[in-house]
Design a protein around this nucleic acid. Sequence first.
DNA 1: CGGTATCCCGGGTGATACTG
DNA 2: CAGTATCACCCGGGATACCG
Lengths: 132, 132
Amino acid sequence: MTNPPVRPAPLDPEMFDPVCPSALVPFRVGDKWATLILRCLEDGPRRFSELKVPLRGITAKSLTQSLRALERDGFVARTEQEGAVRRVDYALTTLGRGLLGPLDTACAWTREHWDELIDAQEAGLARAAGRH
Amino acid sequence: MTNPPVRPAPLDPEMFDPVCPSALVPFRVGDKWATLILRCLEDGPRRFSELKVPLRGITAKSLTQSLRALERDGFVARTEQEGAVRRVDYALTTLGRGLLGPLDTACAWTREHWDELIDAQEAGLARAAGRH
DNA sequence: CGGTATCCCGGGTGATACTG
DNA sequence: CAGTATCACCCGGGATACCG
C-alpha cells in the first residue's frame, strides 16, 4: 500500500465569494487574512500559490506577512519540500487547529443571526443618515 | 415596591489589567476596543464616563467612535436620560448580548491554551531571531 | 458630563517590479 | 514557484484643545 502525503481536494475559488466583508463577520483573528488562511488549511496542507486562489486579490506580500505571523505565533507550520520544482507547504499546527473550534462557534453564530445582523445594520445606517 | 432602573455594581478599574495585549487574545470584534466595551456592558447599562475607567487610556474620541460603530451595527443602544445632570447610557441590545456567547467561547479557549500560546510564541520569536 | 474638532503619526495594505 | 524590495497611500488611533 503506497502512502502518498495527504493531498486534500483543491480549494473552491469561490469559497469566500458571496460575502465576507469582515465588517459583518464580527470575529477577526490576527490580521485581515488570518482567519481565512486558517480556514483554507482546514482540510490539510496547502501550497503558497494554492492559498492565493480563494484569497481573491491578496498580494504575495500580504500572504507572506500573514503566514509568517501565523508561523511565529505557532498556528501554522511551514515546510519546504525538496525536489526539482520548488514547493512549500503550510499546515495547521495542533494549536492552530484548536483555533478552528472557537472560530467555528463564531461563524455559526454569525450565520444563525445573519438576517438580524443585516437588518440591524441597515436600520443603523438609516438612523445615521437621518441624523445628519 | 419601588423599581429603580437597574444599576449594576461599578466596574472594576483593573478588570483588564493583568493582560489583554490582544496580540495574544486572538479574537477581535469590530475595532480595537469593541470586545472590551461589550464586556463592560455585560452586567447592565453603563455611562460614558463609567466606561472610560476600565478602558485604561482610551480617549473620548476613540470611545465615541467605537460606541457609534457598535450602535450603527445594532449591538449597543444609546439612551439619553433627561434630568438636571447630563446622563447617557449605553446598553447591550439583544443582538449585542448574543455576541457575548461566541466571545466567551473564544475567551475560554484562549484561557485554556494560554500556556501553549505563550510557549508557541516564544518559540516562534526564538526561531525568527535565529534566522536573522 | 458627554462629547467635537484638529492635528498628526505609525503601520497595515496594496501596487508594482524584481529574484533565486 | 515562492517569495523580496520599494514606494505610496490611507486611516485607525492617540494627543490636545474646545464646546453645550
